[in-house]
Design a protein around this nucleic acid. Sequence first.
DNA 1: CGATGTCTTGAAGCAGTTCAACCAGGGTGG
DNA 2: CCACCCTGGTTGAACTGCTTCAAGACATCG
Lengths: 242, 242
Amino acid sequence: MDAVRKDIHNSNVPQVCKSCEARHGGVCGALTTEQLVELSKYTTRKSIGAGGELHGQGEQVHAYANILKGVVKLTKMMPDGRQQIVGLQFAPDFTGRPFSSESSLSAEAATDTEVCAIPKPALDRMVNRSPDLERRLYNQALLELDQARDWMLTLGRKTAREKVASFLYLIATHIDPEKSEVLQFELPLTRQDIGDFLGLTIETVSRQMTKLRQEKVIHVENNRSVTIHDLDRLAEVAGIDG
Amino acid sequence: MDAVRKDIHNSNVPQVCKSCEARHGGVCGALTTEQLVELSKYTTRKSIGAGGELHGQGEQVHAYANILKGVVKLTKMMPDGRQQIVGLQFAPDFTGRPFSSESSLSAEAATDTEVCAIPKPALDRMVNRSPDLERRLYNQALLELDQARDWMLTLGRKTAREKVASFLYLIATHIDPEKSEVLQFELPLTRQDIGDFLGLTIETVSRQMTKLRQEKVIHVENNRSVTIHDLDRLAEVAGIDG
DNA sequence: CGATGTCTTGAAGCAGTTCAACCAGGGTGG
DNA sequence: CCACCCTGGTTGAACTGCTTCAAGACATCG
C-alpha cells in the first residue's frame, strides 16, 4: 500500500471523501490529503431525483461530478426524437469531460442519485498539478471506451433476447450486490430506458423479459425487482463467451 | 506557434517523423526533437497488406503504432463468429492501448496500410516522462469515445438507409480528400466490412447503396469508387442534425 | 375509488434477413 | 487466347424477428 493510499485513511481527510473513497477507488484516490482538503472546499454534495438532469446535450459543462449513489444515464438524441442511451454510470464513477467544454450528450439521473459536484475550474487546476489524477481520468476514459465498444457489439449483432440478457447481466455485475450466491437487485431503468439502451421498443423488451422469466433464467417481482439464480446461465443467454 | 511545435520543423527531426507529423498532428507532436530522436531509434516502419493483422483479439499487445497511410479496423467477434467493427482508424491516428497489456479486440488493416511501429516499453517510458504526450493520448481516447458513442446511436436507432448514408458520410469526412467541391474517394471497406460496421448483412448494404445511387445522393463506379456531389444532402439522409 | 403512468399481451405489418441465382472482373493454366 | 474458376458484388423471392398499433392489466397516488 503506497503513501497516497495511506493518506486516504488519514483522519485529516474530509468526511465526504472518506465515504466516497471507501468504495472501489474513484478518481479522487489519486490525491494527497492536502489536495483532497483543498478540493473539498469547492465541492458540494447534491441530490438529484430520478429523471433530473446533470446537463443537457450541447450545453456547456459547468461542473464535474463523482457519483456517490444511484445510476446516471448518458443519452444521445436525434432531431426527430429517437433516443439512444450510450452509457450508464454507477458509483463511484466520475462524470464530466475534461478539456472540452461542450458535450454532445446529455446526462440524467436514472434513479435517485447523489453526487459530489466539482466545479470545472477547481478540477482542471488540480489535474494540471497531479499527474496521478490525470492518469486515473485517462484510465476511466479507456474503461468507458471498452464498455462502449462492448455495447456496440451488443447493439449491432445480438438478437433481442441476447440484448435483454446482456442488459440484465450488465446491471447484475455493476450494481453492488449483497455478496451472496443469489443476486437480487432493483432495475435502475424503466422499460423505456432499457429499450433506449438496447435499441429496442418497450414491447420487445417486455416480451423478452417475460420469456426469460418463463424459462427461469430470471425471477421478477413488481416489474422492477430481479433475482438471478445462475449468472453463468444468464451470460450464456447473453452470448458472452465463457 | 509554441516551442514544441517549432521543434517539429527543425532539421534534426528524424525524416520518418517529419512526413508523419506533417499531417493533422499525431501524438508524437507532443515530443521535443530530442525525445523524437530517442524514440525513433526503436520505431520501425511497416507495410501491412489489406487483411493483415496488427494484433488479434485477446492477444498481448507488443507494440503501438502510428498509422501513416491506410485504414485500420477494430473488430470484436462473438464465439459463434458474428462480428462487429467497433472503430475505424485513419492516418495519423495512434493505435494500441497503454497500461493494459491485453486487448479485447483485434486490429487489422482494411486497406494496404503503412504504420510506424513503436515497441511498448519504449513508448511507456516516454509517456512517463512526457505529460504532454500522455495528454495527447488521453485526448485521443476521449475522441474515440465520442466516436464510439456516436456510432452507438447509429447502430441502435437508425434505419438501414440512414446507416449506410452515415457510413459514407464518415468516410467522406475522414479520408483526406482532394479539397474540391466534389468529394471523390475509394471505399476502404468491402461490403462485408461495411455490414459488420453497420450491423447489417451485405445484401442490405448493397441494396441501400443501389437506392442511394438511383436517387443520385451518391455516384458509384467499379463498386468501390464513390463520388459525392452534395455532402449536406448525404448528412440529411444519414439523419445527422444540420 | 377513479385516475394516471407503467407494463404486458395480442394481432397485423414491414424492414431487414436468408437463401439462391446471377453477374463482372481478374487471375491461372491448358 | 479462351475456358475455367474464384472472389466480391448485385438482385430477386420468401421468410421472420422486431415494430406498430391497439387493448387490457397492474400498481401507485391523489
